[in-house]
Amino acid sequence: MSTLTRKAPASAGAARPPRQPRTKPERPIWDEEPGAAAKAGKIVVLAVVVLAVLGPLYTIVLTSISAQATITQAGGLVLVPGEISFAAYQQILSGGVVTRAVLVSVGVTATGTALSMVVSILCAYGLSRPGSFAHTPILFTLLITMFFSAGIIPAYLLVSGLGLINTYWALILPSCISVFNIIILRGFFMGIDRGILDSARIDGASEWRTLTQIVLPMSKAVTAVIALFYGVGYWNAFFNAILYINDSSMNPLQVVLRSYVLQGVSVPGQVDVGTGAAAGPALQMAVIVLAMIPILIVYPFVQKHFTKGVMIGAVKG
């Protein structure tokens, strides 16, 4: 086993300036250095995977900010940056269907996420003390809905019976609670040290105060992750709108995206190919980019929270 007698890996990275020697990754001493072919294979596979995710996003974003001449020259999607123009965004965001749809989506997402978070946090905290009054029946009331859903038809009949068709509430209330998210929050709250909660109670804090001043500040990471899940759910919701909204002026962005990109409806402004007008592909891409921007903005901040747990687990080994 030559691997066991291999020198400590400090020499492996000697070519590089040793800026932070402490954080430099180390291969365990028993692990043999992979062969050149294996290394190359790994790099190729991972590069393909990363490219498969980022490549399409790159060309879509680039096309959306390309000038008409560049798009015509490329024959459609742009791979090599040419002349940059934000005409497409100016055009779709200066009033009209897309602007409206963005406002609808932002409004529904903000209201819905806030409502969902309040209801879910309260419920999760209320259920975080096994043995409390009616704890088990309430928990089962929640859990049963994860295993049997009534189906589309009764759901539609209910929403129309409540008179919510063609209201924004139809996009919020039916999907307001995810039992699954509540269970995650509850699991986290249950893991909080009892001693802290007990000392708060001894100091005279009510349950509300314990929740808002002690539990929530301790749960920022999990709350952020759950808020991301709810927010993404509302932002991405498409079928609810198809089902419950008939008034096209109330359509959220996902429905508009579908009609422009998948159903071939032309984006307003696309027909008048004036000198200042943006090209058709650029307009379509701009709508696609609008639909992903909020996710791209929020994701990096929250993503580290759900990776962190896994990574710490990995370090602990």
């Binding site: 259920l127 704890h135 349950e207």
Partner: peptide, 8 residues
């Protein structure tokens, strides 16, 4: 606690 769970 029960009231907190009630809205959901």
């Amino acid at each position: 606690l029960v009231f907190m769970a009630l809205p959901a």
